[in-house]
Design a protein around this nucleic acid. Structure first.
Lengths: 233, 233
DNA sequence: CGCCAAATTGACCCTAATCAAACGATGTGG
DNA sequence: CCACATCGTTTGATTAGGGTCAATTTGGCG
């Protein structure tokens, strides 16, 4: 049986701050589900049937054009919320980038519960406002930054958000981490091609700012210079 | 004295749906304020002291980089909400694109009221989710669309959102409207330069899809073809 | 060991940026 | 009333950053 009081993301997810009773009630509506890398939970344009909390793993939210061009519009980490409550259809798809563990609800049961529990809605509002801030930060990146600035920004963002999602101290950031995205996905997130991503990573490596022990790992060797690149040129 | 029951945006803004008592209480916390074109209400990085509903006019939310590059991250229309509640500092500036009328609150008084009125917070959540959807749609534009696709998308978006903010029927869209942005601002919104904006507009005009009676007005003459350009190529 | 997919590297091209000039409204002062 | 300055915009010429196409290299895995 599911025990929300033991949940590893409880403090950071929207269910944090609920009373034990509320937590039990919400818990009875949801179920844990494992999804494998590559699996899609919600399809763009389809009726949004489910919402979920991410317990473990990394997922992407993506939108695409009729001719197949795809843009990743959000990276979803543990304790983040997935789905579009109070909307008919999902404007984006959600797909697992790594094997992941979710706490999943039907949208209708979640909405009903949320309307009766203002504190939950308040937490959801806070999460949504944070998402909106990050989306706008990304608009600045996509609209104005050069390829190298985009790559540097991404590496710094991942090094902090993977940390926040992990189990170490809040104020720490990781200098070595696993990339949850392949080169194509990095391109789809940054508005670049796979070749440009590769070239810029090679360049940063050549200049000694980062190391790439293998295709799925990054080591930040000179965070200060990386931050310089990310914010100016 | 202010009378919220007469407010022209009451039905669409977050205060819609409040009881008469609640509406009066909220109204007593806010005050109407006129801002002139070009005036900035909130500065990026400053403490977010105020939030507001837009009653009339159009504003922009923008973020900038240390070297001065600027990205417009949101266009704010009548009935939209301005500001960043439940956050210390504003991640963006808000500036009037036209003379505008606001219903303005201190952030602290608004937050206090919101926490006591779940129905208001619910409306705010709905608005924020809508903003997030639009921000993500814009990420697709900035990350993946060509210059002509961006221009076409913007014109279509303005033709519907200016309408929604106006007083005609919901299902209608405008074929002729006033541009609240100059060419530089269009560039800052679409991630293009002023010259590219101008060239693409001239091209659409040359092909008979739009007319430009003067620098601040647009007429959509072939909506279907414009939609084709906006969504594919 | 050898296959296959992912990533890197190279050569070339194209879109949009940059630099520069001309144009057209609007407003001012002679 | 017209010469002229000014600002926003348009148009033109050139350049550069990143895309496209193609050839290798790397590495994961049966």
């Amino acid at each position: 049986m599911k025990d929300c009081t033991e949940c590893v993301v409880r403090n950071r997810a929207i269910c944090g701050g609920l009373t034990p009773d509320e937590l039990a009630a919400l818990g009875s509506l949801g179920r844990n589900q494992i999804v494998r890398r590559g699996q899609t939970i919600v399809w763009e344009g389809d009726e949004a049937l489910v919402v979920a909390n991410v317990i473990d793993g990394v997922l992407k939210a993506s939108m695409s054009m009729p001719d197949g061009r795809e843009q990743i519009v959000g990276i979803v980490f543990p304790s983040d919320f997935i789905g579009r409550p109070f909307g008919q259809e999902s404007p984006y798809s959600v797909t697992a980038l790594t094997d992941a563990e979710l706490c999943i609800f039907t949208r209708s049961s979640f909405e009903k519960f949320a309307l009766q529990h203002p504190d939950l809605e308040h937490r959801l509002l806070q999460h949504t406002l944070g998402e909106l801030d990050r989306a706008r930060e990304w608009m600045l990146l996509l609209g104005k930054k050069s390829a190298s600035e985009r790559i540097a920004s991404l590496l710094l963002e991942l090094s902090t958000r993977l940390q926040a999602g992990g189990c170490a101290h809040d104020s720490m950031v990781l200098d070595r981490f696993e990339l949850p995205l392949d080169r194509q996905q990095i391109g789809d997130l940054l508005g670049l091609t796979i070749e440009t991503v590769s070239r810029q990573l090679s360049r940063l490596k050549g200049e000694g700012l980062i190391a790439l022990p293998d295709r799925r790992h990054v080591v930040i060797q000179d965070r200060a210079r990386l931050q310089n690149i990310a914010m100016a040129a």
